[in-house]
Simulated assay, not measured.
Amino acid sequence: MNALLVFAHPHEDSFNRAILNTASDALRANGHDVTVRDLYKLNFNPVLTGEDTSAMRAGRTPEDIRTEQEYVAKADVIAFIYPIWWTGLPAILKGYVDRSFSYGFAYQYNSEGGIDKLLAGKRGVIVNTYGTPEEVYESIGMTGSLKQTSGGGIFEFCGVEVAEHLLFGGVTSVSDDVRKEMLARVDRAFRAL
């Protein structure tokens, strides 16, 4: 199985990096091929421009977008690992989606007015961290909203079946033992793929 891990956190010593390493190790332990696209290390340009969309319409996908689309096309499993900032994706990951999951590659409208989900057959995993305690996000409906916008609005919209969506709250204030259990959940989820 080919796994693509798209990672969006700027700090080497972050808990998100520990999640990335745990996920990667779990997949490799089961003999899977793993590709990590660390968007900050790549200095990925998140800005979708008019030139980008015009080039794609003309069949001349810009090289940096085409490179990411090749990784996505090859993947059986796509994982997004990122912190929740301002109740959403970091800008660099949002831009990755805007540019790489483009019309004609990830989805298109058909003659019946429906949507062709061009990434069907792939599975997706989303792992999020946030500083607010989990019970607060749960009580205000944010947990469901995050699952709907990222899982439904991105992956499922393009045909990617969401296999798992892990949300870890309070990561800045919980104990090391709690964070170790979070990593154990990540390990179990990725080993189960």
Rank of each mutant, 00 (worst) to 15 (best):
M1W: 00
A3D: 01
L5M: 07
V6I: 14
H9Q: 02
H11E: 05
E12L: 07
D13M: 10
S14G: 13
L20Y: 04
N30A: 07
D33F: 07
V36C: 05
D38H: 07
L39K: 06
Y40F: 14
K41S: 11
L42T: 11
L42V: 06
N43L: 01
N43K: 04
T49G: 04
T49P: 03
D52V: 05
T53F: 05
T61I: 13
Q69S: 07
Y71D: 12
V72G: 09
A75K: 05
D76H: 14
I78G: 07
A79T: 10
F80G: 12
I81R: 08
G88N: 15
L89M: 15
P90T: 10
A91S: 14
R99Y: 01
R99Q: 05
F101W: 10
Y103C: 03
G104N: 15
Y107A: 09
Q108P: 00
N110F: 12
E112V: 03
G124L: 00
I126W: 04
Y130E: 04
P133C: 08
P133E: 01
E135C: 11
V136T: 08
Y137W: 15
E138C: 02
G141W: 05
G141Y: 15
G144W: 05
Q148D: 01
E156G: 03
V162R: 01
L166S: 13
L167W: 01
T172V: 04
S175Q: 00
D176H: 12
D177S: 15
M182Y: 10
M182G: 02
M182R: 08
L183W: 08
D187P: 11
A189K: 03
F190V: 06
A192L: 11
A192G: 14
